[in-house]
Computed example of a mutant assay.
Amino acid sequence: MAKKVVATLKVAGGKDWAKVIRAVKSPKTGAYTFREEMVPVDKVQEFIASGTK
């Protein structure tokens, strides 16, 4: 997984993105899973506040 992020950052526009990791609780089991997504830096706060994709 890390190789993809490093490769993305080597591109000219790669630094304009941030990796966001969010804990999501399963309604069925109650267990938490983690979702990783690449989001534009200027949209990170909006993405976190939204709660869903």
Rank of each mutant, 00 (worst) to 15 (best):
G30R: 12
A2Y: 14
K4L: 08
A23M: 15
T8E: 05
G13L: 11
P27T: 12
W17P: 00
S26V: 02
T52S: 06
D16F: 03
G13Q: 15
V44Q: 04
K28P: 01
M38E: 05
S50A: 08
G13R: 15
D16H: 02
A31C: 08
A12K: 13
Q45T: 07
V6M: 13
E37A: 06
S26M: 10
R35Q: 08
I48F: 06
R22F: 04
V11K: 13
K53H: 08
V39Y: 07
V5H: 05
Q45W: 11
D16V: 01
G51P: 05
E37S: 03
T29G: 03
A49T: 03
V24N: 02
K53D: 02
A49R: 10
V6G: 08
R35E: 02
S26K: 06
A23N: 15
D16W: 04
G51T: 05
L9M: 06
E46W: 08
D42R: 12
M38T: 08
R22G: 01
T29D: 07
A49I: 02
K19Y: 10
K43N: 04
K10H: 09
A12S: 06
K43D: 05
A31R: 11
S50T: 07
A7W: 15
Q45P: 05
E37V: 01
K28V: 09
T8K: 12
I48N: 08
K43T: 00
K4H: 14
G30L: 12
W17A: 01
A2N: 12
K25T: 15
G30D: 10
W17M: 02
W17F: 10
R35A: 00
K28D: 10
V39D: 00
K19N: 05
K43R: 13
L9D: 02
F47R: 07
V44P: 00
D16N: 05
R22W: 10
E36M: 03
T29P: 11
A7D: 08
V44S: 03
W17G: 00
V24E: 03
F34I: 07
A18R: 15
K25M: 13
K25E: 14
S26P: 00
G30Y: 11
